[in-house]
Design a protein around this nucleic acid. Structure first.
Lengths: 153, 153
DNA sequence: TATTGTTATACTCTATAACTATA
DNA sequence: TATAGTTATAGAGTATAACAATA
């Protein structure tokens, strides 16, 4: 069995992924600033497409539950999210995006998706790239913009 | 001229890059923990392959200069880096990696480069991926591990 | 007793401002 | 006066611990 050693070229490959991600991050920062949302607020909002309890949101975003209170406070004060007491268990606050929140979410997603990777490759190249990356990523799943917005995990 | 709209598939492409980066980040965190280095310390060390003044290091890492003092203090206390007064301008501290620092740097780089992207693709596939990513990245340059370790820019 | 959410608090990371020593 | 580095400090962001309400 061969020992796995990273060649010069492998290193370059990693650097390319980092460079692309870096571009996305910069773009995402611009988008979030445009909507006056911090990374944590944007990540929370993006996750609330399907309603969640605060506990579920915390698990989802890998935040300690204590942080969710303040994040949701802000989103609620801005009229983007509503806390609804779960009738089945009155300890639980179910978080639902308001109409205004939905509108912001649509615009925010649109802004995010203008990441320029899209523009520098042709259709065929994008299809090839998609295939290669899918294989490279393996079984890693459920990763999206919200994951990008957290520095540590 | 066509309006640029991100398709479902383009979104997926972005998500794949995020997923890969996320894997690198997790791997990098493991490496840094193994060497008991914070992201800032690791990033600084990685940049000091070529000696720099503290000011240059700050610019390089996009830190305010005031932060460099503490970071270098730690690296110096651990015997990884030395502050040398520049004889030509006694205000300047030139930072040079010690022998011990070089050894750590070699091991740290080796650890970083074991990122598993390397293992899931064949040689041909990696070459294709490299070509596509190079085109997608465009003229973005000088991006590497140190850039990954900073959340914001 | 265990769990959801809240509060108070502490720690890390980074930036700003004021200072010193040189230039 | 301007620049390199230092110090003190303040603000984010996140985690830990103790607590109240509910199960």
């Amino acid at each position: 069995m061969k020992v796995k050693v990273a060649s010069e070229k492998d290193v370059r490959l990693v650097e390319l992924v980092i460079a692309l991600f870096d571009e996305f991050r910069e773009h995402a920062n611009t988008c979030m600033a445009a909507f006056d949302l911090s990374a944590a607020h944007a990540a929370a909002l993006l996750r609330l497409d399907t309603p969640l309890s605060q506990r579920e949101l915390a698990d989802c975003l890998k935040y300690d539950a204590s942080n969710i209170t303040g994040i949701v406070d802000t989103l609620e004060q801005r009229g983007l999210v509503e806390r609804q007491v779960d009738p089945a268990d009155r300890r639980v606050r179910r978080l639902v995006v308001t109409d205004e929140g939905s509108r912001v979410l649509v615009h925010l997603r649109k802004c995010f998706e203008e990441a320029s990777l899209v523009s520098r490759l042709g259709d065929d190249e994008r299809a090839q790239l998609r295939a290669l990356l899918t294989k490279a990523v393996g079984d890693r799943t459920n990763t999206s913009w919200a994951e990008m917005l957290r520095g540590r995990r």
